[in-house]
Every structure is written in structure tokens, then in C-alpha cells.
């Protein structure tokens, strides 16, 4: 295993550590075979329809309403999670209460619980005869088998994204900032809204985006509770499956591409926004004092 005796390859600096070519080569090959090439296949397939074919599929009222439903419910659920996820993260980072560790572990339940299980469990709870449904139905609120049910399922699925993204940022927030705000006469409410929230906003946006992206594509937890009525509660992923079962591969690919493109565009926009706000934040911050060289290590 004489590792790096060859002269350095052009284009990259030579490193004393071995295994770069092997590990990178394997990673890229595997990534291409499993993810990139198959994904490119969807775009090729959809492109095969031509612009007219593509617009024809996407113009179908059933497709349009499915896309609207998927993105709309995902957005509403992500908003619900932004509010309640922030609340949960705040309470778990800042307060002590009995049973905290147990509750903390359950926050990750949606990550661990198979979506189909979540789907049938939520349906059982919110159906007219379920534990929750039986109280809501008489009040005129129907959740299961309506778009509202989809929002409930997507809220379940997306919650940990917001909480787990916010928690470390809240935990690391400097106490000095809050003490400074208080010493300058700010009320607690002012401190929270003007000092703490702006500091954690980028993390909140990230969590929101993650929950939203997950919600758009979610299938397992939704189909049981949705009712799947065409143009009412039929989500886009389900429509892809229906088109596949009709052996309409092109149509399925077209809907998939529409979902992918919208999702990626939104995520890209959010990333750009964040990168911009980070730069802005760093620029407005005063230049930090140089740390002591002993602590810093040498930069050479």
C-alpha cells in the first residue's frame, strides 16, 4: 500500500492522506448510478412529451388541482409547524419540567415511525368515530377525508424538522445579548421579538423549508386520511401512481418533473435568501478582535 508516491495529479493539491481517489470515485459512481442517472431519466421522459405534451398534461384540471393541493397543504402545514415548532423548541431549550427527556425523544417520532403507520393511526383518530373526530364532527369540523386531514398528516410529518433545526441555534444564543437588551430597558417581550427571534430567523426559515419540502412529496401518511377524491383531496404523488397504473409513463413523469422543479426552485430561492441574509449579517457585524494566537492556532 504505497499510497502517495506518484507526482501530484494536475488540478488538485496533493495531500498526505491516502484514499482520495478511491473514496471520491466510489462516492460519485454510486451517487450517479443510484440518484443522478435515474433522476435524469424522469426529465428525459418528460422532455419526450415536448412542450405541448407537457403543458397538456399539466393543464389537466385534475393535475392542476392535485399540484395546488400538495403545495397548498404543505405550505399550511409548514406554517403551523413554524409556529408550534418554535414554541416547542423554545420550551425544550429554555425551561425545565418533569418528563422533559421523554417528551424530547418523542419529538423525533415522525422521523422514526413508518409513514403508513402514522397514516392509519391519524385516520383512526380523526375519523368521525375516532378519539378526536367524535368531538370535532358534532361541531361541524370534518378532518379525515378532507384537505384538512392532509394538513394534519403533514404537520405530524414536518414537526421535527422545525424543532430540531431551531434547537441548537436557540441553545447557542448568547445570554449576554439578552442581558444587554434587558440592561438597555427592553421588556422581555421586546427582547424576545427584537433580539432573539431575528437571531434564529435563518434557522426557522431552514426548518420551514425542510418541513415544506417533505410535505410536498409526502405520500404514506397522507393517502389514508386524505380520502383521495379527484380534484378535492387527491395529492400529486397519488396522481403519479394512478398515471403509472394506467401505464401513462409520460404523464407520470410530467407530474413528477413539475413537482421536482417547483420544489427545487423554492428551496433554491430560500437558500439564496439565506446566503444573502448571512452575508448581510456578517458585514454589519463589527470586526471581531483577533483571538490570541495560542487559542487560534497558526493560520499559515
Amino acid at each position: 500500500m504505497r499510497s502517495v508516491v506518484a507526482p501530484p495529479a494536475a488540478g488538485r493539491p496533493r495531500s498526505a492522506l491516502p484514499g482520495f481517489g478511491l473514496s471520491l470515485g466510489f462516492a460519485i459512481t454510486y451517487l450517479s448510478l443510484i440518484v443522478l442517472i435515474p433522476l435524469a431519466g424522469v426529465f428525459t421522459k418528460a422532455a419526450g412529451l415536448g412542450w405541448d405534451g407537457l403543458w397538456q398534461v399539466l393543464g389537466e384540471p385534475r393535475v392542476l388541482s392535485a399540484l395546488k393541493l400538495s403545495f397548498g397543504t404543505a405550505f399550511v402545514a409548514a406554517c403551523v409547524n413554524a409556529v408550534f415548532g418554535t414554541l416547542v423548541a423554545w420550551v425544550f431549550v429554555r425551561y425545565e419540567f418533569p418528563g422533559k427527556r421523554l417528551f424530547d425523544a418523542t419529538i423525533d417520532l415522525p422521523f422514526a415511525l413508518p409513514t403508513a403507520v402514522a397514516g392509519i393511526a391519524l385516520t383512526a383518530l380523526y375519523a368521525g368515530n375516532g378519539w378526536i373526530g367524535q368531538w370535532l364532527e358534532p361541531a361541524g369540523i370534518k378532518i379525515a377525508f378532507t384537505p384538512l386531514g392532509i394538513v394534519v398528516a403533514l404537520t405530524f410529518v414536518g414537526l421535527p424538522f422545525v424543532v430540531r433545526t431551531l434547537e441548537p441555534v436557540l441553545r447557542d444564543a448568547e445570554k449576554e445579548l439578552e442581558e444587554a437588551a434587558a440592561s438597555l430597558g427592553a421588556t422581555r417581550w421586546q427582547t424576545v421579538t427584537r433580539v432573539i427571534l431575528p437571531a434564529v430567523l435563518p434557522a426557522l426559515v431552514t426548518g420551514f423549508a425542510l418541513a415544506f419540502a417533505r410535505g410536498v412529496g409526502e405520500y404514506g401518511s397522507v393517502i389514508f386520511i386524505a380520502g383521495n377524491l379527484p380534484q378535492v383531496s387527491e395529492i400529486a404523488p397519488l396522481l403519479i401512481i394512478i398515471k403509472l397504473e394506467e401505464l401513462n409513463y409520460g404523464g407520470a413523469a410530467a407530474v413528477a418533473v413539475a413537482m421536482l422543479v417547483i420544489s427545487f426552485t423554492l428551496l433554491l430561492a430560500i437558500n439564496t435568501l439565506q446566503a444573502w441574509s448571512n452575508r448581510h449579517r456578517q458585514r454589519s457585524r463589527a470586526a471581531p478582535a483577533l483571538p490570541h494566537p495560542v487559542l487560534q492556532g497558526e493560520g499559515s
Binding site: 487560534q296 497558526e298 493560520g299 499559515s300
Partner: peptide, 16 residues
């Protein structure tokens, strides 16, 4: 001082 290249020189002698 920091950034004078002394650590880089040492690491080059070492082969790091």
C-alpha cells in the same frame, strides 16, 4: 508571527 509560514514549512518537512 501568525501567517509567517513557519508551520507550513514544518509540515512540508514532515510530508504532511
Amino acid at each position: 508571527p501568525s501567517g509567517s509560514g513557519k508551520t507550513t514549512l514544518l509540515r512540508i518537512i514532515a510530508g504532511l
